[in-house]
Design a protein around this nucleic acid. Structure first.
Lengths: 143, 143
DNA sequence: GTCACTGCAAACATTTTGCATGCTA
DNA sequence: TAGCATGCAAAATGTTTGCAGTGAC
């Protein structure tokens, strides 16, 4: 649990050659716009005919996160999920049963987060807000 | 990522015997009041002379989470961390640098979450809200 | 032609599970 | 005494890394 401050600015080339595989990962992530696990992306690419190694997917995603082009988040199951980090910041309402995700905007939450952080003297604040529930359709099926 | 609906209400005994090991885990968790990883707790118990297996620590923590006595959270590193959870539902503002966590209450967020879920026809809603930032102390050290 | 990127597989870390034994009620 | 909880070790899962080969520039 010891997060280290980035004391150095390593001369990290951060990807200098653009390759088919890297593009494929980036595209796949952008296509859905939703949170996707590395394994998921890897499977999708394989299914669509692209030949990409799992390690490469991880490396590409890592690279995207490093460069700020993607967001990373951990699911309750311990999987890392990635999302293209566009300009619009939003959250998700995910159905526990069918997995469908609804995109939600929460100006109220944004404001609250900033306010709380400020009050405690924290800066450079980011936040994670995810809602889980059962959607109407699944409720009916379960009843 | 396919969450299955709990079609049954398994007669989960949820711990019927109180044992020294279980108490030890609960106590250790309560002692610090902060987020602790299973491995961390295991090491601490071993260090203090208690003989507790790692699997037992995991089982005890799982049990505490199931019964609502503990909160579980994933670190950026993918480790699961646990914290004693009182009756009050609250969130955390965690320092990215030193790991210190501040407990925050967010009635505004609770209301917003319920509202959003309701508007989309979702029921049985839970939510995850975590704030990350750099605390004042760490800011000064880094400058 | 060089060297970064890729792919495979092995290594790793964390968490879960199977099974024989111990201990609580 | 009966049966849940424990402990060990093996398995499972998700992710990272080493290294030789390939392809972009």
């Amino acid at each position: 649990m010891t997060a280290h401050p980035e004391s150095d600015t390593p001369a990290k080339p951060a990807r200098e050659r653009s390759t088919r595989q890297f593009q494929a990962v980036r595209d796949e992530l952008a296509r859905s716009g939703d949170f996707r696990s590395a394994q998921d992306i890897h499977a999708a690419l394989r299914a669509s005919g692209a030949t990409v190694g799992l390690a490469t997917v991880y490396r590409a995603l890592q690279s995207l996160v490093d460069s700020g082009a993607a967001d990373i988040l951990r699911t309750a199951g311990g999987e890392a999920v990635y999302r293209e980090c566009g300009d619009t910041h939003h959250h998700h309402l995910v159905c526990r049963s069918c997995g469908r995700a609804v995109e939600v905007q929460g100006p109220a939450v944004e404001r609250w987060a900033d306010d709380v952080a400020d009050r405690h003297g924290f800066t450079d604040v980011s936040h994670t807000v995810e809602l889980f529930g059962v959607c109407g359709q699944c409720q009916r099926q379960q009843q």
